[in-house]
Amino acid sequence: MREWLGLVARLVTGGVWIWAGALKLGDSYQSVQAVRAYELLPESLVEPVGYLLPVLEVVVGFALVVGVLTRGAAVLSALLFVVFIIGIASAWARGLQIDCGCFGGGGYDPGAEAAYPWEIARDAALLLASLFLVRWPRTRLSLDSVLFRPTAA
């Protein structure tokens, strides 16, 4: 039962990552602007992080969906969610009105204030799913179970 739950957690979390990352892959500039809008990183880091995040999201999502290195991918996934929750909470606390840039977009958004609680709730739920996989990485229909099957008893 737990291994099936793990499969669901993998597919949902990984699917969200792939979707979120893929929407940003086509627009490097916007991804950089979305990072810059948080006003948290020094300018020298804004561009590298803006380029890196969408790629990392897609790769982590891919690893989770196919179930390869599940525990490692889940650890990265959980770390990313912690970072995003901190980012959104800090934007909210500083009164910034920005689109979280979670699924593309980013930058100024006059309706941002109303969206922050939902974004944090969504990320927290996905963080829990990731932590579930860190604790119980053995899941159904995973590439791990094929790659790392013991060759002999």
Binding site: Y29, L52, P54, V59, A63, L69
Partner: peptide, 17 residues
Amino acid sequence: LVVAVVAGFLWMRANDS
């Protein structure tokens, strides 16, 4: 996976217009 990330990063940088 690391190669994929690095390649993606370079691709994103090259496409920043």
